[in-house]
Amino acid sequence: MPRNRPVRDTAPGSETVRLPFADRAEAGRVLAARLVPLGLDDPVVLALPRGGVPVGYEVARRSSAPLDILVTRKIGYPRQPELGVGAIAEGGEPVFDHGLMQRLGLVEEDLDATVAAERDELARRVRAYRGDRPLPPVAGRAVVIVDDGLATGGTARAALRAVRAKGPSRLVLAVPVGAAETVRAMEPEADDVVVLAAPWSFRAVGQWYRTFDQLTDADVLSWLERASGRPAS
């Protein structure tokens, strides 16, 4: 059963988080400290690329846990692709925002072409980041899903459901900052939701970081190589 213990900027026994974060690395270090009280045994950290990877690197390093990525893709409204009406994660099925779809007059079949295109792009990114290497086994293991922030939460929800279906012993969502309503909506999706700050006034994830560079596939590979101890190629 989900434990649903959200940890925010008022977490007992912890200092108030000061926003904005300097960068994703600083946010990851603070987030890692907040995960310690959970007492996770032999966890695996799965970061959502691209922005979640430098955060996940710090979490994994301080937890002595392996770091890998879990690729997700937003499913956009065909007439306005930036408007997400769902998302999909590798190894999972599409997760739709049925309330929004109803307001837009959409049914799932209307999105078949969009879903197919996003599956293709998801597969391309998996090959780019991981090659032929599969996801690490998560059945019976504590899994921490990490991103750099939660705006609408669509990709995080898809990631959590895809991993939940694989039977982890404990499923944790950990992000430095998230919109308050979205954080609340995520609580049924994970056993623990760890969020450093959940402001009500929330326009975009980037507003909560002083440095919020756009990352590339090469950046993601570099972080993964650092985490594994392999020399950067």
Score class of each variant (00 low, 15 high):
F96E: 03
E121S: 05
V143W: 11
K166T: 09
E82M: 04
G92S: 02
L111R: 03
A128F: 02
Q102K: 15
R73H: 01
T72Y: 12
A151H: 08
A156L: 15
T114R: 06
L111E: 11
L67H: 11
E93Q: 11
G178R: 00
V172H: 07
V195Q: 06
A113E: 14
R141D: 09
L150M: 13
R157L: 10
Y77V: 07
S63Q: 15
R184E: 15
E108D: 15
G167Q: 10
V85R: 04
L100D: 09
H98R: 15
A158Y: 13
L106W: 09
R62T: 01
K166I: 00
R79N: 07
G149Q: 02
L67P: 12
G84Y: 05
V172T: 09
D191L: 07
I145L: 15
L106G: 08
I145T: 06
D120V: 11
A190T: 04
A142I: 06
A179S: 07
A174R: 05
V138Y: 09
R119G: 03
K74P: 08
Y77G: 00
R125Q: 03
E189V: 01
A65L: 13
S64C: 06
R127M: 08
L160Y: 07
P81T: 10
G86M: 12
P136N: 02
R119N: 04
L100V: 12
G105V: 08
V126R: 15
E118D: 10
Q102D: 14
V183A: 04
E90V: 08
A174I: 01
V107H: 00
G99W: 09
V183S: 02
D97Y: 03
Y129Q: 06
V143A: 10
D191P: 01
D68I: 01
D132H: 08
G99K: 09
A128S: 11
V193F: 00
L67R: 12
A158I: 00
L135W: 04
A128I: 13
V177G: 07
V95F: 05
A113Y: 03
E93P: 00
G154P: 02
E189W: 13
Q80A: 14
D148G: 09
L111A: 10
R103D: 13
F96N: 02
E109I: 05
D191H: 12
P78V: 06
V183F: 05
V195F: 01
V126Y: 03
E187Y: 04
